[in-house]
Design a protein around this nucleic acid. Structure first.
Lengths: 135, 135
DNA sequence: ATAATAAACTACTAATTCTATAGACTATAT
DNA sequence: ATATAGTCTATAGAATTAGTAGTTTATTAT
C-alpha cells in the first residue's frame, strides 16, 4: 500500500518540467536528475515512458531536452501513477481496469470499503493537476 | 499501492473468527482455510502472527483451534494491516511510524496531498471494526 | 499409555518486482 | 567533424511475496 519510487520520480520530473513550461525552455535529463536528486539513468527510462504516454516531448542534440507535451493543468497525478505503477487501487480486485479474483471477494463488506477508498484516492489524485504543484 | 494477499487473508480469517465469536466455538486452521480458500500452511503463519499480536487465542490438541482474543468491536482493520504489511501510508515518508527520506519530500505540496490520503485511509480503516464485517 | 489431532516453530524456495546501471545507437546543433 | 543529448535493450542485485516442508509440542479420547 505504498507508492513506488518510480512514480515519485515521475511526478517530480513532471513538476520540474511544469515549472519551466511558461518559459518554453527545455530541461535536459541531467538538469532534472540533479535538481530533484534522481539517478540519471533511471530517470532516463522514466522520461521515456512519459514520452510514450504522450506527456512530454523530447528534442535530441545539443540544446535538446524535455518539455511538457500539454498544459500543466491538463496533466493529473492519477494518470501518471497509473502509467508508472498500474492501477491505484488498494486491492487489485477493486480496480476498474482489470478484474482478477482475489481472496477479499469473500467479504463483500470489506470489498465495499476498499472500493470506496479506491474511489477516494482516484478522485483526489485526478483533481491534482501539475499546475497545482508548481512552486 | 495495493494490499498484500497476506493482509487480505488475515482479515478474512479474523472475520471468520468474528462470526464464531458469539457461540464461543473454536475454529481450526483447516476450517478457516477451507471456508475462505486460503492455503493452509500459509494461514498457519498468519494466525501465528495474529496470536503474537494479541488478536487471537489458540488451543492445541483435538477440539483445539482458534478464537478471537477480544470483542470484534475492539479490533479494527487498520491495525491488522499495519501488523501484517507495515504502515498504511501511500508513501513511506508520510508515515507516522518511521521517517525515511524519500524523493517526494522535494515537493511539499505533493507530500501534503499524500499525507491527507494517508490520514483518510487510516481513519476509514480504524473505524472499520470486525463487528461491521460479519455477515 | 498411546494414538490421533491440532497448533508452534523454523527453514527454505521459487517467482516476481524494484531500483538501478551499462553500453551501444541515433539525431542534431555548431 | 565533434560534442551533446535523447533512445533503446539488456541485465543485475536486492528485496519482497506467497507458499511449502518438516519437525516439535501440547492435548484429548480411547
Amino acid at each position: 500500500m505504498k507508492l513506488s519510487v518510480k512514480s515519485e520520480y515521475a511526478c517530480l520530473a513532471l513538476i520540474t518540467l511544469a515549472e519551466a513550461y511558461q518559459s518554453g525552455k527545455l530541461c535536459s535529463i541531467t538538469v532534472v536528475a540533479e535538481s530533484k536528486g534522481i539517478p540519471k539513468k533511471y530517470l532516463e527510462q522514466i522520461l521515456l515512458i512519459l514520452k510514450h504516454g504522450g506527456y512530454v516531448r523530447s528534442y535530441k542534440g545539443p540544446k535538446g531536452g524535455y518539455k511538457l507535451a500539454k498544459d500543466p493543468a491538463q496533466i493529473n497525478i492519477a494518470e501518471i501513477i497509473r502509467l508508472m505503477d498500474g492501477a491505484l487501487a488498494p486491492v487489485e480486485s477493486v480496480s476498474t481496469y482489470f478484474f482478477e479474483h482475489t481472496p477479499i471477494e469473500k467479504s463483500p463488506r470489506l470489498l465495499e470499503v476498499f472500493r470506496h477508498l479506491r474511489n477516494y484516492i482516484s478522485d483526489t489524485l485526478e483533481q491534482l493537476t501539475l499546475d497545482k504543484l508548481v512552486e
